[in-house]
Design a binder for these strands. Sequence first.
DNA 1: AAGTGGTCTAGACCACCTA
DNA 2: AGGTGGTCTAGACCACTTT
Lengths: 263, 263
Amino acid sequence: MEKSGFDLSGNEPDIFSDQEKVDKQSFVPAYAQLAAIIRRRISDGTYAPGSRLPSESATAKSFGVSAMTARQAVGVLVEEGLVNRVQGRGTFVNRLEVTTSNFGLDSLRKVFQQQEKLEVRIIKATIEAASTGLCEIFGLAPESSVVLVERVIYYEKAPFTYQVGYARFDPESPIVETMLDTDVLTGLFFEKGHSSFMKGELRLLPTTIDSREAEYLQAPEGENVFKLEHIFYDFNNTPSAFGWFIISPDKMPLTSRVGVWNE
Amino acid sequence: MEKSGFDLSGNEPDIFSDQEKVDKQSFVPAYAQLAAIIRRRISDGTYAPGSRLPSESATAKSFGVSAMTARQAVGVLVEEGLVNRVQGRGTFVNRLEVTTSNFGLDSLRKVFQQQEKLEVRIIKATIEAASTGLCEIFGLAPESSVVLVERVIYYEKAPFTYQVGYARFDPESPIVETMLDTDVLTGLFFEKGHSSFMKGELRLLPTTIDSREAEYLQAPEGENVFKLEHIFYDFNNTPSAFGWFIISPDKMPLTSRVGVWNE
DNA sequence: AAGTGGTCTAGACCACCTA
DNA sequence: AGGTGGTCTAGACCACTTT
């Protein structure tokens, strides 16, 4: 409970304690230190999978921190997927399971952040009659018009992704301009100016590239790639934009880790 | 925002306030109510994308809750990906971006939890010489042996996934028994008894099923499916198990949502 | 210097579960 | 009834950013 500053007191090890300590003079937050200690105990089997962790209050007392801090430490492990809190029963060590993993699109984000290395070529930008499928998606009457934009996005001069996007054709809406604006580097879904969208839903699918896509992406026809479908809704909860990205797993690796990795 | 239970105390609306309130008598936690209020303001444009949220302390004061509670409310929105905290500067409303989405394997977990509906058929279970590729993965000398298990897992009598798994052949290790144990329903990576694993890494890939897989899965050859590769490490940080699942996107839909969905 | 988020305390009450 | 996690308070100090 001492203060920081010039405290050079020889912190003697507590001979009555058999455990690691939280160093409050350290720049590393107490909760992070405590999380690391518990994490290590999980990884070395002290706390086995399926077993219950010591209660948060007991942990707090045992490490000389407040209950909130102990709780925060456990919260770190919860977010890492290592443990699971159950109200009234306790906190339990998770088993190592494939199904707990999560795949993020960080690799995609990193690429799209480097705008200076990106280049966009518009393959097609038209207004055309919507197919029945599109009318369903957009909730449009048959024979309505939609905006279609096809793009190839290049990263460091190499084709990175092929993108197809449809939007409701609404002359009142700024979406049309945005979609047709060839100056926009990364397209509708990556730049400012879509406060007109409120929410979106994405779906990841496996597919193979057809001859057309193969040409644009300079890749062999039939290659296995990801198709990242997206549908965006405006502030009226109306589906307003629909499309997909065709992208190789080489350019968008989807990996995930489970268990204890940081020691 | 109404009262719960029999609390009929005439809480008069505060005519000096122009905003929604947090009802502390509600069963809904204050932080959740506050999060909902802020979320709504984001969705209706009161807090526009890119703009700064009122500070946590200001929010706390304005809604009559403690700073910790306001912080917790903002934390909810951070986890939802709606806002972004920057130390010393403030909390900012995120733009709606494809790249912020995350894909989880919840659909897979739900299936594997229903063990009574699962059935496993072992296609192959042998000990064989490792290929050079496998030797690399496991860090084995050439011509070492590995355990190979091929399974088809059925869900409600229909083929669900085709699984191939390799493990180091180590007679001392319980892994061998586990892998060969035909009684284990969901296999090595879903059941108890692998405290011998410390961590794992997964990779999601698009692929097409070959004739062999097509037969086992009763699916058309050439269908586009996911390949979920996994590699697990034991407590010595040695890669000990490697394999993959072949699974259709119908059975493992990967979807993700961005923006404000819960109103 | 002032304001922001980040951490922390030492209490408190509650809902939930187990015994 | 007693223990567990879940929420909440009213303060406090810190690191970081901006003015």
